[in-house]
Design a protein around this nucleic acid. Sequence first.
DNA 1: CTGTATCCAATTCGATACTG
DNA 2: CAGTATCGAATTGGATACAG
Lengths: 119, 119
Amino acid sequence: MNVSFAEIQGSSSGCFAKGSPTRLVLDHVSSTWGVLVLGTLSEGTRRWGELRRDLDGISEKMLASTLRALATDGLVHREPLASVPPHVEYSLTPRGRELAERMMPFLEWIATNSDDEPL
Amino acid sequence: MNVSFAEIQGSSSGCFAKGSPTRLVLDHVSSTWGVLVLGTLSEGTRRWGELRRDLDGISEKMLASTLRALATDGLVHREPLASVPPHVEYSLTPRGRELAERMMPFLEWIATNSDDEPL
DNA sequence: CTGTATCCAATTCGATACTG
DNA sequence: CAGTATCGAATTGGATACAG
């Protein structure tokens, strides 16, 4: 391993500590829907209704709060279109794309190693 | 991005779907304490009491259930030592180490990009 | 020392209904 | 279409006490 966990933690004194900004982002991103929203948006821009369909099983409440959290963290961009009927488009910010890229190898490993492996 | 989210999802038909083994592991690993336990164990073997001290703020209940979940997933190895007083050592399995390695770039990015960045 | 059991508070989440 | 408001159910999480 080229970077140790201790080094990461030490890099900003008590990072991942309860209440730290780092920890907040970690919580947002590592939540069930956070991961799936970021993954879906990594495919491209989506409208509210599309996200709701793609993320099968998500409630409107969770979709709203997940998007708001990620937008606040500067990972997701919200673009309201001045049209009738109203449309809003969601996409990853450059930061969001960076994060999503680093998340993929991780998700890929889980997908290929956790769907049937015995123990 | 070299691997798309859609490809990952499609790779095992409905992976990350609610109730799938993949989703279970994702939930365990992406929980607050799951990440921190894996990170700490990536530093080396730890005893129960050491983990409790290192993971400041964790309750015995959460430590127990997190360790049990990760052990069930085959990511953490539990080694009871036949001694008095009793000792138990926890360490990452080979699979756990693989996962931890893939988690590090991700954690590193959050640590360096989310501790002060404005927006 | 290493846990398990229990109780209780706090939070999360989903379903539904409703607004701009 | 794109949300917000509200309520209740379910889950999570912590503190404490206790057992092997």
